[in-house]
Structure formats: structure tokens, C-alpha cells
Design a protein around this nucleic acid. Sequence first.
DNA 1: TGTTAGCACTCACGCGTTACGAGTGCTAAC
DNA 2: GTTAGCACTCGTAACGCGTGAGTGCTAACA
Lengths: 347, 347
Amino acid sequence: MLLNERKFKILQAIVSDYIETAEPIGSRTIAKKYELGISSATIRNEMSDLEDMGLISQLHTSSGRVPSEKGYRFYVDSMMQSRALTSDEAMFLQQMLIENIYQAEYMMRETAKALARLTKYPAIVSEPFLKKTTIKHIQLVPLDEKSLLLVLVTDTKTVKNQVVNLNTAPNYETLTKLSAQLNTHLAGLSIREINRQLIDKMLMQFGEHAHVLMPVLGIIADMIQSEDDVRVFTSGVKNILAFPEFSDKTKAEAIFNALEDRASLFEILGQPLASPQGIQIIIGAENHLDLLKACSLIKANYTIDNQSTGCIALIGPMRMDYAQAVSVVSGILQSIQNVIKALGGTQ
Amino acid sequence: MLLNERKFKILQAIVSDYIETAEPIGSRTIAKKYELGISSATIRNEMSDLEDMGLISQLHTSSGRVPSEKGYRFYVDSMMQSRALTSDEAMFLQQMLIENIYQAEYMMRETAKALARLTKYPAIVSEPFLKKTTIKHIQLVPLDEKSLLLVLVTDTKTVKNQVVNLNTAPNYETLTKLSAQLNTHLAGLSIREINRQLIDKMLMQFGEHAHVLMPVLGIIADMIQSEDDVRVFTSGVKNILAFPEFSDKTKAEAIFNALEDRASLFEILGQPLASPQGIQIIIGAENHLDLLKACSLIKANYTIDNQSTGCIALIGPMRMDYAQAVSVVSGILQSIQNVIKALGGTQ
DNA sequence: TGTTAGCACTCACGCGTTACGAGTGCTAAC
DNA sequence: GTTAGCACTCGTAACGCGTGAGTGCTAACA
């Protein structure tokens, strides 16, 4: 779609004004507020054209114009100015990094908080999806006669635990030995690399303890493959109450529902990224979740060794401040990558 | 405070009607709806007395009456009928128990969900506060040259992890030995029992690895003592939007703030219980958290070996359905206790 | 031919008025 | 002691109306 410069400027004025005020905007207001050197009548003519093109719309005759989804899309694609982080924002992120971040879980929670704090939009942060990470260490820990604890550490130092129930659990020494063997075979592998052949080979070596190995391997596969165990952190969900577009209770509730339900959170995070390395902007009904069709999403994957893994996202009204949100998301993305690198340590 | 039977019945009618409808209730309505065998004029006189006693109040002259905090307190203490779980509720809890509950974290999350689902009030569930539980097992897991992972399992099978950074981390065999020694000394103890004497004795035995022991012990103490690491699960926070008393945005926001902030959650959960074994009902300003002064709380501790440990709580408007809430909380409390017993297993 | 001034028209919104109803307290009669 | 009746209060919903921000259309102008 091509717009002449005047239409371009008018659309830009409408979108950014609406992002700021949430009020429909009329020709006279544009003429007064933005010095375009043309009269309101001319602006009216141009606006009529923009409406024909589907970029803006009216709520009723004789109301001002409001950007349409297509209008937002055009804005995001063609006229949004990427802006740098303000010094306040940068300092906030810096501060967050300085505080000791020992472990993935803590970092995730803090990241969600920071996103929500800086943008005033609800934020979602997911742990890395394990199927894309590799196993760093496995440890079998004794619990009692009939159960043991399986501890799995990934290359991002995310730690997972699961109790394994058996008829009779091996004693401490045996578990220590088994742990060592498991590590010999599995450390450094991703789930994709654990295949039938490898399992058979391990079963041979495990001998009398094969009855322990089978459930343990099964659970490792489950832990790695199922979303069930991936923690998702949200923060600032209440922020949506501040937006007039959600002052209607049922609309606010829809969003709360989406953000409190793990299934729909995964739906939000899990859609394949058009540009997996970058930041994706999803406007209104472009996302397929009915509960969020009045919202826009800003998503990014953080990556480990260039493999996409976890996800961070912001949710806001369609008139969200895309420029600010994108810059904050990209800033935080970098911070996370740095921390992941640091956590990776000497490996 | 003593009320004659007529006043008692009238107050009961006012409280339960208001709990149901959230509308002030007048003498004529009571006369029609509840067959007390007296006229509205008589009821008016009695209501005037009840108001003098501070049990009910008017929002303005010529409006119906509304229970005061004192009135709710009287209701809860003297006239609330404890009710059994409905068969639906009982089945729901039964179902929850049947689903495999392997681990404390999962159980907590599900418990919070169930509480919120059954009552329509926001629910909070905390993990056991460690200072009151005992250590079941400690394991040191290798990570890399400069760090190791400390895994701590408690008697409720709650699992905590923390990365420990050292100048040079011992190798796998050493860690295995150290783990065994730590367990010999510490398993079965609560944090109160880890004293200077014991630490000195351990330092002697650890010899060359004393430089590992000190940070590890420090972190164990931290993990056990600090609230920071206690997970708190909330569910159904959005439910407050359904109550007309919170339709004012700022009032709803106050509650969202309280329930999203860990510090205030701890404040909610942490107040000493008047009756540590039972269910505590806190009405309005009886709780000291300003953000929640328009709310009532229903709290209970779940216990392990008769020591109070974790906490479950419901939050609602002052006119919450105390009878139902209490019965659900007590039902869930029992379920949790059963699960804890089962998790305790053969120990 | 593109731009602009002017005009008639639309429609949401705020405001004052009014009618209504649910509630009260008081008084007098039973 | 109880109740019927009455005057009074006050929040709320409905209504009408003026206002203002907006539109599209037309005619005049550069």
C-alpha cells in the first residue's frame, strides 16, 4: 500500500494521537494540533480516502476517526519510529542485572516484573521449553524405600524435580552409581538425541537396575517434552484495568481469564514466530485466541546457542504504544541473553 | 452481646440477605420475605435498636440497612450455620485427590485453583514455611568448575534448589562424599536444631572441604529462613471483578496490588493465628493491611506433625459467604492433610 | 484542478427536571 | 407492646434539551 506524504502524515497523526488519548480524533483537531499547513476541510477529504482504504474507521457517523487493525499494521510496518531506551529505563534494567541472579526461575520472575513495570502492560515470561535445550546434569536422590527424586539440570541451569515411585528404590550407593552412568550417557544431549538405540545400549549396561532406568527415562522424556512443567510467569495483569477500552467488566475478565489459564498462555506463547529471531507484533484478530482478539501482542524469543527456546511477551490494547513496548522488549531481551551467557559460565 | 430472639432473627435476615444480594435491606422487605410474624413497623423499631448497638448501619437516611463489621463479626461468631460440603463440592475435591499428586508444588497450585473454583473468591496457598519443617535429604550436584547445585528435600517432599558459587568446586566423587556426610549430620533436623556446636563438629570432620561447607550451610539456613524462596500460589484473582462492591476501579486495583505483591501476600498469610489449629475469619479492618481493609479473609494453616507450617486463605468482600467459604476451606484442609500424609509415605 | 470556507446535519454527552419507589421516623389508635 | 398511617428523605431512572465536536457536500477561489 502506498500513501502520498500528506495521507501518511495524517494517518500518523491519527494513530499516535489515538495511542495517547484513546479518543477518536477529528479533522479540526488534527489541523490545530499538528501543523500540516492544510485546512481541516482538506484533512477531511484525505481522511475520507483513508477510510475507503480501510486504514481508519468511525464508530458512528459524525464521530472522529479511529485506526483500524489494518491501520495499526501499516503504522507498525511503515511508520513506527524505533526509539532508544530512556535513561530511566536503561538504569532500571541495569539495576535488575546487578542484583544477584543465580537461577533461571528468579530471573524469569524478575524479568516479567520489569517488563510490566516499564511498560504498564501485562507481561508474560516463559521458562525455556526443554525440548530445545540440552541436559547438563542428572541426579537421583534417595527419598524412601519406595521412591526417589530425579533432579534434572539443563544447560540454562533451569532445575526440574520429579518424584519417581518404584516398587523398591535402590540404596544411596547404587543411586550414586546410576547417576554417574546416566550422566555419562545423557549429559550434553537434547531430547531429540535420546533415541531407541541409545536406550537399548544403556539398558544393557544397567543390568540388574534396568527396572529403575525405564521409569526414569520415561520421566525425563516427559519432563522435557510436556509443557506441563514449564513455568510461566505473569506480572502486572492488573494493569489492563487502567485502559478505558477494558473498563467494561466482561472485556477485562476475558483478558484475566486468558492470563490465568495455562492452556491459553501456552497458546499465546506457542504460536510459531514469523521471524523467530526478532520481535513479533501481533495486532488484534491476527492472534487466534478469541479471548484476546481486542488486544495486541508483542513477542520475542530468547535464544540459547541460536536455538529458539523461551518466550517473553507483552499484552496491551490495540492502541498500545508499540514503539515503547518494542524498545523495552528488545532491551530486556538483550539483558536476558547476557544473563544466560553468564549462567552458562565456563561450560 | 445478647440479643432477644426477634432481634437475632432480624439481624440474621439482614446479614444473609445482604450476603446474597449486596443491596441494603429495609423493614418492609424483611417483613415480606421472611415470615417473622411481625409487621414492618415493629421490624423498624428493632432495626433502630440494632443500629444503636452498632450491628447494622445506613448508607444515608432513608436507605435500607447494611451489616457493619461488628454485625458480621456477631454473625460469624454466633449465628453462622456451618454447612457440609455439597456433593458437587465433595466430588470435585475427591477428583482432585485422585489425580496423581506427586509433588508439593503441583498440589499447591491445584489447591489454589480448587479453592477459587469452588468459592468464586480469590485464593492464596503458600508452600510450607521451611523454618517449621525438617530436612529430609541434601544433595550436592556438580555444575561446572566454579559452581554446584544444592538440592534440599524437606519432610513434605518440597524441593528447593540453589546454585552455589565457589572459587573451585569439588569434583563429582567429592561432592558425593560431602553429600553423604551432610545427610548424616543434618537429615531429620529442623533449622532450629542446626546450632553452632553442630556446625563446629561438622567443620572438624570436613577437613580440607571446609571451604565448601560454610557457604553451603549458609545457603541452607537462608533457604530455610527466608520467605523469599517460599512459593505462594494465587488463583481466581479476577473473581473480585464480579462483586459490585469492587466495581469501582480503584477498589479493584487495591486488591490486585495486594495479591500481586509478594510482600503483602506474606503480610496476609503471616499474621499470627488466634487459633492456630482452626480456621480464622478476619473481617474488614481487623486485618491490618490497608489495601484489603474492605475485604474479609478466611485463613487456615495446614500442619505437619502438629506443627503449623503452610497457609491457605480466601479473600472476599466483607459480605462474603462465610458459611460456604469456611466449609470449603475446611474440606480442602483435610484433603491437603491427607495428601501430606501420603507424601510422607513410609518415612 | 486542488484547496478552502461555509453550511446543514448527526450524534454522544452532560445537565437539570421530574416521577417513582424504597426506605425511614413519628404519632396515634388498638 | 404492636401496628397502621402519614409525611418526609433520598437515590435512581427517564426524559428533554442544549452544546460541541464531528461529518459530508457545495460553491467559490487560486
